[in-house]
Structures are given as C-alpha cells and as structure tokens.
Design a protein around this nucleic acid. Structure first.
Lengths: 130, 130, 130, 130
DNA sequence: GTGGTCTAGACCACC
DNA sequence: GTGGTCTAGACCACG
C-alpha cells in the first residue's frame, strides 16, 4: 500500500488518497478482509494531516470500499475488489475520452492520435523499466 | 466560434473558454486580424457570467492570442495561430500522458490501453458523424 | 429553514443538520431550484463551526439533495423532494421498528405499546399546541 | 440468556449487552440469586471482546443489577427485577417519545403514525411467530 | 460574496 | 491503541 501524493496536482489530496486506495484494492495489493493502515499511520507516511486521511477513508466507506471495525480499524470490504476494478477502468476511460474529444476538436486526426498514444506509451514503459 | 461549455465539468468555466478559443484559432475557425465576439455577446451565447468571459479574454491577452484594438474590441493576434497549434498539441500530449501513467499504475497493460483508445476513438468519430 | 440543533444529542451535529435539511425539503419548506443558506450564514445562525455545516452540505450533495452552483451557492436538486420524503419516512419507520422490537423483548404486550404510543402522542401534540 | 448483538448498530456494543441483560432480568429469563455466564463464556457466545463484556458487567454492577460473589462470579441482585422492569419501560418510553417527536417534525400526522406503529407491530409479531 | 480544501489541535467512545 | 467529531483559522478558485 505504498504510494505518493502530489499536493500541487490540482486533484485534491484526499481524492488522490481515495483513488490510490481503490487502485491498490483493484490490483489486489490489499485484499478483502485485510486491515489498511490506520488514519494516523498513513498520515505520518504521506506527511499529511490526519483529518485529510480520515476524510479519504470516510469517502471510501460511503463508496463501500472500506468498513470500520469499532475500536480496531478499517478493513477492506468483501465485495470491494470487483467494484474498484470496474470503477478504476471507468475513471481511466472517462478521462481518456475527454482528452480524445478535445484532441479531435483541435483537428488532430485519429492516426495522429494513435501515433501520439504509442509514443507516450513507449516513453512511459521505458521510464518504468529504468 | 460556436462551442459549448459544461459548468459541471470540473474544469473552471473561464479555463474552458480559454481552451476553446485557442482551439478555434488553431483550427483556423477564426483567423489573425479578425475580431472576436464581445464579452457581452459571448456571455449571452454561452449563458455565462460576463465576468467569466472577461477573465478568459484577459488570460488570452496575457497568452498573446488576443490583442485589444482601442475603442473597437479584441482581435486575434498576428502570430497566434502557430502558437495555439503548438500549445494545443502540447496540452493534449501532457493530459494524455497523465492519463496513461495512471492507467499503467492501475495495472492496465499497453495492449488493453491501445484497445481502449481505439474503442473510444471510434465512438467519438461515430458520434461526430451523427 | 429554521431549526435548532442539540450538541448533546448523541447524534452528531452534522448529521442533525443533514436530517433537518431533508425534513425541510420533504415538507416543502424549501423547494427544488431554490438556494439554501450559505455555509457561513447557517453556521452563524446555528452557532456552529462553518466546517461542520460544510460537511453536512457535502453529505447532502452526495445524497443528491443539494447541487452546487460554482461561485454562487447551493440549490435544492430537482428530484430531491420525493427522495427526502421517502427517506424521512423510512428513517422514522426504522427507528420506530427498533424501539418496538426492544419493547417486545422486554415483554410489553402490543396493547400496552399502543397505549404508550397514544399517551406520548397526546403529550407531544398538547405541548405543540401550548 | 441468549441474545444477539449487532456491532454495526450505532449503539455501543457494551451498551447493547447492558440493555439485553436488563431485559432478561425484567422478563425473568434470569431470576434474582441466579448466576449469569462468566465474562469469557458470554464473550465467546457473542463473538465479542472479553473486555467489552467485562465493561458491561461493571456497568451492571454500578446499576445494582448484578452483585459479585467472591471467587464464584456474578449473580443477579435481589431487588433487580423491579428496577429493571421500571428502567426498561422508561427507556422504551423515552426513545419512543423521541421518535414520535421527530416524526411530528417531519409532518407526519398522528393518524399516519398510529397506522405506522400498527403495521410495524404486526410485522414484528409475525416474524416472532415464524 | 460563494464553496472547497487543508492544517492543527482537541475531546470522545470503543477495544 | 483505534476511528469519529468538532473547532479554529487559513488559503484557493470562482462569479
């Protein structure tokens, strides 16, 4: 469950935490029934205010990803994995779609776009390997 | 210069206007030396607060896309087309890259991503034809 | 939209605000499309921290009762009235049910319970008239 | 002395145990002078932390419902039955009253409320028979 | 002016 | 120790 947050990202910190936890559940880095780091622990790890983490965890509860065990902590909900996987793909798809639409509006052809995507993919995976 | 803005888009309204104007210049829907709609006119057209349009136009002047003609209004700057075209491509590329990075973080393979891109491209162009 | 909150109620303050707003929408004290008091205004009115009101309003947004108009305020969502009415009745029913179950567990007969309910109803309405 | 506790009830677990023991005494499921299950036994039965049961028993001693017999365990206090009966009725009445007040605030008429009560009573007793 | 976010520090109930 | 709630005060983007 290790990840980084970027406070100057535009996306709210608590929202970044929400997404990253969902990503982690989706790729089974944490499994249903397991406990996740406590509010205070994750806050320390990310160098963020505990309230911000608490807010993210609250959001994750209303999203059905976490459930609280009184006095003990928060665990990953049973049916969370599939939901997170679906949700993650949907989020990616939606943002991808928006970018592509804007690309089209600015007169880029489908072929130019595919080439762009390929270039970027190669750059990213190359960086990932390094 | 007709376009729509989506107030519930997450992206600020004035920012959407800025981008759309740049898109319009990039694809030569408006050409250097031409006048663009007045603040009030565009505000009425987009059903948006005139202050918001004014702010977008101010930003566009700072960006060198528009220049003011005393007592007359705002015209598209001479060298704007190339700059907009470059800027637009760069914007698209940057956002595309960010989406692809997140996609990769969430365990989507390069192939899955290419398929996703193709699907979305086909959907968009199909919609565009309708 | 005037109501009181009781900080020593056991129920969280933000939750009381959420319920009272839903009550207000349900009984059409505020109607879909209307604006509700600003965060700061209601906070002043209830002698409560603005963050607490903000949290209640956020909850009401995720519940689909309010929707935010950027830079302007929060308005009652279109379909909110029916949802609130249903939800309110359900809340009452659930709590009533729980009390009745406990009553039954403690050997109170259905007739004793009905008498109790009648007595309390009369007391309450009498107080309401005074 | 068999009963169930619901950890996601909102009501604290130890408080639920306290109430249920009082209910049991009130309806004479356990009688003054009888021993009640040990902390460990009840904890196992309810799948609850022994500390939680211990805390409930402590509360019940403070409330005069249980009294300790040195080296043996806890027994139901002599005068407990009447006290529990009275206390239980009062608790029920208080909570009933609160629900009815909220119901009234949300514009439910006395008749609608009586109908609701009747419906719920029938549902509960029907379930109890099954 | 509006809502949205974040930080800091406090208190509570529960296990 | 845990999460949950509340307060106080700050900064930001938006209209």
């Amino acid at each position: 469950m290790f990840f980084a947050i970027d406070p100057a990202n535009g996306v709210a910190v608590y929202e970044q935490i929400v997404r990253q936890v969902k990503f982690a559940v989706a790729r089974e880095a944490v499994k249903p029934g397991e406990m996740i780091p406590s509010v205070r622990e994750l806050a320390r790890e990310l160098a963020v205010n505990p309230n911000t983490v608490a807010r993210a965890y609250r959001q994750l509860q209303t999203d059905g990803v976490l459930s609280s065990v009184r006095g003990t902590g928060l665990e990953v909900a049973e049916a969370a994995r599939d939901r997170c996987r679906r949700e993650t793909v949907e989020l990616i798809r939606a943002r991808l779609r928006q970018v592509l639409i804007e690309a089209q509006q600015s007169q880029l052809s489908a072929d130019e776009l595919r080439r762009l995507v390929d270039t970027e993919l190669r750059t990213i995976t190359a960086e990932g390997d390094s």
